[in-house]
Design a protein around this nucleic acid. Structure first.
Lengths: 130, 130
DNA sequence: ATTTTAATCGCAACATTGTTGCGATAATAT
DNA sequence: ATATTATCGCAACAATGTTGCGATTAAAAT
């Protein structure tokens, strides 16, 4: 039945996500974790958290991978269909929970998951550009 | 003025794209190229072709990167705002040129580029599943 | 409280993907 | 034919992710 365990490393990773308003990469998590656990362990924790729908994986336009907390809205089936915004300047990735794309797809395709990422300048960097 | 040259390797890569109906990864191109040119050269050719708007880069949900030919429709500004479909079974990625998402974004964000990828079963694999 | 079990970990080793510097090569303009 | 310089090949490196396996350890069972 595959129970999932609470370990020190997992707790630490969850706390890091709790303190972050933006999505985090493996490297960023590792920097915060320090030598509390191994590099590989972080990969495995992230994998588990994704499977348990506690975080979701975000792939950016440039191919970089980040993770962010899931905010469940009492949906039965949990699909991460909201948009992500990737700032070209500060490189931060944020979930735009309320931005959901609408689209029409040919009937002979079966869609299981979607990825909708917008890239450009976030409000902070847009202001400091003026 | 930076002229761009036609080399044997570039011609070969373009021909491979011409013969493919789906998007191609660096590894797939390399397999077809054989030892006609170096691995690094393929990276540099892909980089150039992207800059010249001859191909566009597609980042899949799982983080894999592929490239596909651009189909220009007499637009002045060339934005790759169409959807891409990634089949979970045959792993092929195809451009859905006619599928374009509509969405509403907060005004304080400046969007320069978008990535809209759908993942699931393509028509071929959907049929063979029945 | 002690034992059992299997989920998780650390480590080492490896694979893939992508980048950079630099001297050599070759496409194009003159 | 010659000059210019975009492109190439090679080697070396870096980042990211994966796998196997014996050692730990959280949590269930006793």
């Amino acid at each position: 039945m595959k129970t999932t365990r609470n370990t020190a490393a997992k707790t630490a990773v969850l706390e890091i996500f709790g303190n972050s308003k933006t999505a985090l990469s493996h490297a960023e998590i590792q920097k915060q974790i320090g030598d509390l656990c191994d590099r590989v362990t972080i990969y495995r924790i992230l994998e588990r958290l994704v499977n348990d729908d506690i975080i979701h994986k975000i792939v950016n336009l440039d191919g970089t991978v980040k993770y962010a907390k899931c905010h469940h809205h009492a949906q039965r089936v949990h699909i991460h269909n909201h948009a992500h915004f990737s700032c070209e300047k500060c490189l931060e990735i944020t979930c735009l929970e309320n931005v959901k794309p609408s689209y029409i797809i040919p009937h002979n395709y079966k869609v299981n998951d979607i990825n909708f990422t917008l890239s450009g300048l976030c409000p902070n960097c847009l202001n400091s550009n003026i």
